[in-house]
Amino acid sequence: MKKALICGVSGQDGAYLAKLLLEKGYEVYGGSRDAQMSSFKNLVSLGIRDHIKLVSININDFRSVLQTVLKIKPDELYNLAGQSSVSLSFDQPVETLESISAGTLNLLEAIRFSELPIRFYNAGSSECFGDTGTTAADENTPFHPRSPYGVAKAAAFWQVANYREAYQLYASTGILFNHESPLRPKRFVTQKIVSTACALANGNSESLTLGNIEIARDWGWAPDYVEAMWLMLQQSNPEDYVIATGQTHQLKDFIKVVFETVGLKWEEHVRIDTSLFRPTDIAIGYANPSKARTQLGWLANYKMEDIARQMVKEWRV
C-alpha cells in the first residue's frame, strides 16, 4: 500500500485529492497546522474524514516538516498548502509569500535531507503567467505575475525546478488554471455568485455586488484537476504541466449560466463596485494543456457551463 502525505488537506483540492487517493488504495495522511483543532469540514462533506490519518504540520517550520516526513516516510508528498486567495494576497503579501515560497522550500529541503525516494507534487498557478493577451500559455511561456500570490507561486515553481535539477529530486509542478467546486469558500468569486443567486431564487432580496466581470478565465472542475496531480507523480520522469480546459470565458458568462440555472436574469441583480477591482489584475487568460493531454492522457471532463450548473445543484441540495 502506497503512502501519501497531503499538506493542505483541508482545502478544496486537498479534500478531493484525498478522496481520489483513498479510492486508489493509498494510505492517506492529511497535514494541517493544527489537526486537533481543525474542523476538516471538506473531508466531512465528502464522507472521508475518518479514513484520513490527520497530522499536525507547520510547513513554515523546517523542524516540523522534517519530523513529519521522517515519521511517515510517504511515497508521495503533495504540497497544496499556503494562502490560496489572489484577492487576499494584496492585503497580506508577506504572509502569502512566506506560506507559499518558504513552505515549499522547507518541504523540498526535508525531502533532500531525508534521502527518501519521495515523489513531490507542487501546486503551481496560472497566476504566474500574468496577462498573456490572446496567447495561450503553455509550459514554455515566460512568467510575469501581477499579484503577490502570483509572485509567490512563481518563486515556488523555480525552487521545485532547481531541486529537481540540482539534487535529482522527483519534483513536479502542476500549473493549474482556475478550477472550482462546491467546496470553494464564499470568498472566492464563483462561490459568491452561486450562493447569492441561490439565495435570490429563494426569495432573498439582497443584490450581488462584484468587481470586474469583464475578466476572462479558463475554468475547470477541481475533481478533474486532482487526477492530473496524481498522474504527474506516476510518470517515469518528473516534469511540469499546464492543467486547464483550453476554453476561456468571461466572468459574466459564468454569472449568466448560474442565474439562468436558478431562473433569474442576472442583469436585474448584479451591481458593480469599482472598489472591488484589484490593484493589478489579469484581463484574460488562455491556456494550452496539450502536453498534459499527450503525456499524461489527461483531459478535462467538465466545461464552464457544466461547472456552474453543478455548483448550483450542490448548493441547493
Rank of each mutant, 00 (worst) to 15 (best):
E76A: 11
V86C: 07
S205P: 09
V94A: 04
P148C: 05
N106M: 05
E206K: 14
V44G: 08
A35M: 10
H144V: 03
A156Y: 02
S236Q: 14
A197R: 01
A110C: 11
Y78G: 04
T190C: 11
I57C: 12
E165L: 13
T134C: 09
L46H: 11
M1S: 12
R187A: 05
V94N: 02
G211T: 11
D75H: 13
K73Y: 06
G82P: 09
W315R: 14
L251T: 13
N178H: 08
T141A: 04
F62G: 02
D13R: 13
L17Y: 07
Q92H: 11
L208A: 07
E268A: 15
W298A: 06
L80K: 10
I193Y: 04
Q191V: 03
Q67T: 13
E214C: 10
V312Q: 12
Q310Y: 04
A228K: 06
L20K: 15
I243K: 13
V94D: 03
E98Q: 06
F62E: 07
M1H: 08
G25L: 09
T96W: 03
Y167D: 15
L276Q: 15
A152K: 02
A15Q: 06
V194C: 09
R184D: 15
G124L: 01
D306C: 06
P74N: 10
K71T: 12
S181V: 01
L264M: 13
N106Q: 11
L43K: 06
L264H: 09
D281N: 07
I100A: 09
A137F: 00
L5H: 04
Y167R: 06
Q234I: 02
D13S: 15
L200E: 15
E95C: 00
Q191I: 05
E267N: 14
E180D: 15
A136L: 06
L200C: 13
E95G: 08
V44K: 07
I193G: 07
T134P: 00
P142A: 12
F120D: 00
E305L: 01
G211W: 10
P238C: 13
F259I: 11
K3P: 11
F143V: 02
M311S: 07
V257N: 06
S290N: 06
F177S: 07
V151P: 01
G246C: 08
L169T: 02
A156Q: 01
Q295N: 15
T68I: 04
I59P: 00
G174S: 12
Y241T: 04
P148W: 03
V65G: 10
S99D: 03
L107M: 13
S101D: 06
K192E: 15
L54P: 06
A283C: 09
Y29L: 11
F129H: 08
P223E: 11
A287S: 14
R146H: 03
A35S: 14
T173C: 14
T132A: 12
D253I: 01
D34H: 05
F90I: 00
R184I: 10
Y121A: 10
K53A: 08
V270T: 13
G11L: 05
N42L: 09
A152D: 12
G220L: 08
F143R: 01
L200T: 07
N140F: 08
L264I: 05
I52V: 12
F157I: 00
C128H: 05
W230Q: 09
